[in-house]
């Protein structure tokens, strides 16, 4: 066919039509040294950031580099991602750079920095599709939470035991298959029985809002990006019922 049809009645490229003009990342510091750390985090280079921070540490305190360079830059990346301006890989690479940068600063301080709170994450028993959980982990890390990553195909009892042991503010579970998401209500029931009353954010693949809101503690997480926002709500003092009311129908 020499003249392929091009009618917009066949399809419309809404992504091209609605493309958001690329914005520059906002500066996070007037201090050129701290800004150089922020710039490196934005570029997502987890090797180069060690060089940049190594130089910065000669003139700035490690805690200052974390609080006034790394964390504000990561927040800026989070804003751009939430607004649909940058893509997932950009925030994942920045998260990698932040983890590397914080480790170097902590080494210099001789101690770990305090995280906002602890979150346990897992992929359902019988389910080996954990890429959703990996993304949740990265976004929680980037937002300053400590992530206890239980991995994939985690037995129900192991999840409950981890919550008892680590005392997280939130549990997250991901599942691709409908035949594995049935582990979630069993976990929730055991947690209630043991008095572990924390929001249990469940999402992924075929996991539906109707299913998750059918058991106590369950909050349906439509997107990985919701995980840190819900965790912030918990820090703000909201319980699982209030969170469900806010995020689910």
């Amino acid at each position: 066919m020499t003249h392929p049809p091009t009618s917009s009645e066949i399809f419309t490229r809404y992504d091209i039509r609605a493309e958001i003009t690329r914005q520059k990342v906002r500066r996070v510091s007037e201090d050129t040294i701290l800004q150089s750390v922020a710039d490196c985090l934005v570029s997502g280079d987890d090797t180069e950031i060690l060089v940049v921070i190594g130089k910065a540490l000669q003139k700035r305190e490690p805690l200052e580099i974390i609080n006034k360079g790394l964390i504000p830059a990561m927040k800026e990346m989070g804003r751009l991602y939430d607004e649909g301006i940058i893509f997932l890989p950009q925030i994942i690479l920045s998260s990698d750079a932040m983890v590397a940068g914080i480790s170097l600063c902590e080494e210099k301080m001789g101690q770990s920095i305090e995280k906002k709170a602890r979150v346990v994450t897992h992929t359902a028993e019988g389910d080996i599709h954990d890429i959703g959980q990996v993304i949740v982990n990265a976004l929680l890390n980037a937002a300053g939470f400590e992530v206890i990553n239980l991995g994939a195909d985690v037995p129900v009892d192991d999840v409950v035991e981890a919550c008892r042991l680590y005392k997280p503010i939130m549990l997250s579970g991901t599942a691709l298959m409908t035949t594995t998401m049935t582990a979630f209500p069993r976990i929730a029931q055991k947690m209630v029985e043991q008095g572990i009353i924390i929001p249990f954010v469940c999402g992924g693949g075929a996991v539906s809002e109707a299913f998750v809101t059918g058991y106590d503690l369950g909050i349906w997480g439509k997107e990985a990006g919701w995980a840190p926002l819900i965790a912030e709500d918990i820090l703000f003092g909201m319980d699982w019922k209030e969170i469900r009311t806010k995020w689910n129908r």
């Binding site: 997932l88 890989p89 950009q90 994942i92 990698d96 954990d130 890429i131 990996v134």
Partner: peptide
């Protein structure tokens, strides 16, 4: 089959 999935999951979200 799933061969290589540990590296592809890692690389995909890093645009690698």
């Amino acid at each position: 089959s799933l061969g290589g999935k540990e590296i592809s999951d890692y690389s995909l979200i890093r645009n690698d």
